[in-house]
């Protein structure tokens, strides 16, 4: 993917984010992750039924990378089982860390394939997935109860 197209996709997701803002929070699991700069502040809402992510939204203020990554992530994870979501997450982290990964699985998330060149932005790009993992963990604790 060339740099212009990557930028276009990121900016589109910043200006028209997918599922930003939630009206009815009932039955959604909420998690928030502040990154170390304590600026990016995203609340993620995930609804899980029968081990599957059936809906997800986000709210909050964050930089262009975090906002777009959250938007793109939400498009990808709705409809996935938790295992599928975690497998996607694994591929994504491998891409971010410049390890071998399956780019076909990542779709639009490939726009962050060069993020390692700006180490300080890696945390912005991984923040949504860290938050997703939090919600998945919460869902498991709730089931155990």
């Amino acid at each position: 993917m060339d740099a212009n197209l990557k930028r276009e996709i990121i900016v589109d997701n910043v200006e028209n984010p997918f599922h930003r803002g939630i009206k009815d929070k009932e039955n959604f699991i909420k998690a928030n992750t502040h990154n170390e700069s304590c600026i990016d502040n995203i609340d993620l809402y995930v609804k899980i039924q029968d081990n599957k992510i059936i809906d997800a939204y986000f709210e909050g203020e964050a930089c262009a990378i975090t906002t777009s990554a959250t938007s793109i992530m939400l498009k990808k994870i709705i409809g996935l089982t938790k295992e599928e979501a975690r497998s996607l997450m694994k591929e994504y982290y491998q891409m971010i860390e410049e390890e071998t990964y399956n780019s076909d699985k990542l779709g639009e998330l490939n726009v962050y394939s060069d993020i390692a060149k700006q180490p300080s932005r890696k945390k912005c790009a991984t923040l949504p997935f860290q938050t997703l993992e939090k919600t998945l963990k919460i869902s498991e604790i709730e089931i155990d109860d």
């Binding site: 700069s37 304590c38 600026i39 990016d40 203020e61 964050a62 930089c63 262009a64 906002t67």
Partner: peptide
């Protein structure tokens, strides 16, 4: 525009400002 993005933009021109709360 999110403040952190603005400060990164300015940083590109070696201008240091603080972003955040």
């Amino acid at each position: 525009i999110f403040s952190e993005d603005t400060s990164r933009y300015l940083n590109h021109y070696h201008i240091c400002v603080r972003a955040g709360n």
